[in-house]
């Protein structure tokens, strides 16, 4: 199967940078510790802040660290390669390949995500569990739901990064747009401050934005705060954004395709 081969290739490519992976894990852990203590301070003051208890908050903190690279919250992954190929004009070759363009890049990004989940995801979670008292999924359903939610989170993130990268078709350089996207992504995914802490109506808003699919939904499933219908609705929420954003990608790529055909890249 072509797509599996693409994913495996991406997985292998990332796995050659061992020193970079170790350095990244170290950094994730340092930030995990720092943020843990700020959360402890918050929940000491208000043991029920945002409806979480302190164990929920600490679990959230470490899972968020685990998601940074897996979900590529800061950007990067396969869409970055696409942006580079747009700049050099090599993308014209990709567009004429007899395979689904989005599928091609998604497979590659899923391979990358798998590698990052097993290294930059697993390692900080283990370290966090050693240092702090964390909560683990209470049931098989929660485990399974969490894994599905992570895959969906990667796809939502992929679609957003793809849209950002596609801006290079028109702007040639995606750097500015990518920076901006990274800020939105970092803030509205709840990387710095959990979305449950957002006050009043802002909380309702950030909860329906696509970025809440990155960390908040998977973590709530992990914590067992979403079970049964709520778990399914969480996944449905992610699927909904996947569909909308991938459709948008397809639309943008069709436009881009026409542009490449007309102007020759």
């Amino acid at each position: 199967m072509l797509y599996v081969a693409l994913a495996v290739r991406a997985f292998r490519r990332y796995s050659t940078y061992i020193a970079a992976t170790l350095a990244g894990i170290f950094t994730n852990c340092v930030f995990g510790v720092i943020i843990s203590f700020t959360y402890i301070a918050v929940w000491q003051q208000n043991p029920d802040a945002g409806g979480y208890d302190v164990t929920d908050a600490l679990t959230y903190c470490w899972l968020a660290q685990a998601m940074i690279m897996t979900v590529a919250i800061w950007g990067g992954g396969a869409p970055d390669e696409l942006a580079a190929r747009i700049r050099t004009g090599d993308v014209a070759i990709d567009l004429y390949r007899p395979v689904n363009f989005l599928g091609w890049w998604l497979a590659s990004d899923l391979g990358r995500a798998a590698y990052h989940l097993l290294t930059r995801g697993l390692a900080p979670t283990a370290v966090g569990a050693l240092l702090f008292d964390l909560r683990f999924p209470p049931s098989m359903a929660a485990w399974a739901g969490f894994l599905v939610a992570v895959v969906l989170a990667v796809v939502v993130s992929f679609a957003i990064r793809m849209l950002v990268a596609s801006s290079a078709f028109w702007l040639l350089d995606q750097a500015g747009v990518k920076n901006l996207a990274a800020v939105f992504s970092m803030f509205f995914s709840g990387l710095v401050v959990p979305l449950v802490l957002f006050p009043g109506w802002t909380r309702d808003v950030v909860m329906v934005l696509p970025w809440s699919a990155f960390v908040q939904v998977p973590v709530d499933i992990w914590l067992g705060r979403r079970t049964g219908v709520s778990l399914l609705s969480g996944l449905a929420f992610q699927v909904g954004w996947c569909v909308v954003l991938l459709a948008l990608c397809a639309l943008v790529l069709r436009r881009a395709n026409r542009k490449v055909v007309v102007q020759g890249g």
Binding site: T38, V42, N46, G176, N179, M186, F187, V193, L197, P199
Partner: peptide, 30 residues
């Protein structure tokens, strides 16, 4: 491009502090 990137930096790093302010919606001291 310079103005956009500088303003970008201003707001990106500013969100850090917004995060702290948001925490203070739940507590009144850390």
């Amino acid at each position: 491009s310079f103005v956009v990137l500088t303003l970008g930096q201003f707001f990106i790093t500013g969100l850090d502090f917004v995060a702290i302010v948001i925490m203070f919606a739940s507590v009144d001291a850390l």
